[in-house]
């Protein structure tokens, strides 16, 4: 009886270990734990509940844009427009509210529409017009930033509290300042969307097609997968997440700033890649993106606590990105050679 239970347990463990992409999640996850221990040793306040909740709130938007980029990377493409879409989302929603055109909810809907339009354009240009994704999204990145600048005539907006003080306060609380069950709402938003998109990617047909397109686009096409729709869907998810992060930014600052989200596309690549999403497509899981975003957040926050200036933080994060991919490649080639040797005997 007891052995049976044991068997079941090992089977579950085995199955978790067998899950694709779990290897890197575990490697980087252990690295994350080491980081936390080291930062805790340097400054015990790192573990204070104030800092932990704050840290999680810092990680949340990075996780969301990480999910955005992971979706696109798994199809074998890249989305450089994420940061600009964040900025565009912030500026459009803030302008609509601060000028008194609309209360937050309709403003958000209009904003979402614009963001999804950028996402759809990205997908269409890449999959249908066969533009290299780097170029296509570089273009939309510039366009979206331009839109962010033009909506309020090249100025940051006034406070969104001006015309709808009550609704705007709810908006700010909902996206940033409020807490539910002891955690900031931002964190909850990230968790909820992570679950939704993780489900979409790992449990639905669309998700499977996204992996297939990234793994072997020709095989996917010959199997009747609609490559254009699948790619567009991935870019739509990306734009959606970026839009939500735009709302979070708007709620945080309480106004729209034109340079919001600058550089986010690269943070998103960092979070994805550290978490084991392959830039060549077909590989990676969103659990990895959680770890990747956490590594990013812990490094920023921990180094800040340790008293390191911004410049040093940037250098460290850059090194970590390169290292994590390098370790993965070395581990993988080692495994391959082992397999060859084994096959020989």
């Amino acid at each position: 009886m007891e052995t049976q239970v044991n068997n079941k347990k090992t089977n579950l463990l085995k199955r978790i270990m067998m899950t694709r992409g779990m290897g890197q999640v575990i490697t980087v996850g252990s690295g994350l734990i080491v980081l936390c221990i080291v930062f805790g040793m340097i400054n015990p306040n790192f573990y204070s509940s104030a800092n932990v909740t704050n840290l999680l709130r810092q990680i949340a938007p990075i996780l969301l844009i990480g999910v955005a980029q992971s979706y696109v990377l798994i199809t074998g493409n890249i989305d450089l427009s994420i940061g600009s879409v964040v900025g565009m989302s912030t500026m459009i929603s803030a302008t609509l509210m601060s000028k008194g055109y609309m209360s937050p909810i309709p403003a958000m809907l209009i904003t979402l529409l614009f963001c999804l339009l950028i996402g759809a354009t990205n997908g269409y240009l890449v999959a249908k017009c066969k533009l290299p994704p780097f170029i296509a999204t570089l273009g939309t990145m510039t366009i979206a930033r331009g839109i962010a600048q033009i909506v309020n005539n090249n100025y940051n907006t006034d406070s969104i509290m001006k015309f709808f003080p009550e609704e705007a306060q709810t908006f700010k609380n909902f996206f940033y300042y409020g807490k539910t069950a002891g955690l900031y709402n931002t964190i909850w938003i990230a968790i909820v969307f992570w679950f939704i998109f993780n489900f979409l990617l790992s449990k639905t047909r669309t998700g499977r097609h996204i992996y297939a397109v990234g793994s072997n686009i020709e095989a996917a096409r010959l199997s009747g997968v609609n490559i254009v729709y699948t790619t567009i869907k991935a870019y739509l998810v990306s734009a959606f997440c970026a839009c939500i992060v735009g709302f979070i930014t708007c709620a945080t600052v309480g106004q729209g700033t034109m340079d919001a989200g600058t550089g986010y596309e690269m943070y998103a690549v960092a979070a994805s890649v550290i978490g084991g999403v392959s830039t060549l497509g077909g590989q990676g899981i969103l659990l990895g993106t959680v770890i990747g975003a956490s590594v990013w957040g812990v490094l920023q926050n921990g180094l800040q606590f340790a008293g390191a200036p911004v410049a040093i933080r940037n250098i460290v994060v850059g090194v970590i990105v390169v290292m994590s991919v390098l370790v993965d490649i070395v581990v993988r080639s080692g495994r391959r050679r082992k397999k060859n040797v084994l096959a020989k005997y």
């Binding site: 499977r208 990234g214 793994s215 020709e218 095989a219 077909g282």
Partner: peptide, 28 residues
């Protein structure tokens, strides 16, 4: 096909059902 056309990152079952996955209420 003569040249193998498979998604090498996916499992055997996933390749067999690629493009016509069985779904139950939207879930694979």
């Amino acid at each position: 096909h003569q040249e193998l056309n498979m998604c090498s990152h996916l499992s055997v079952a996933e390749n067999i059902f690629l493009g016509r996955e069985i779904c139950k209420s939207g879930r694979l």
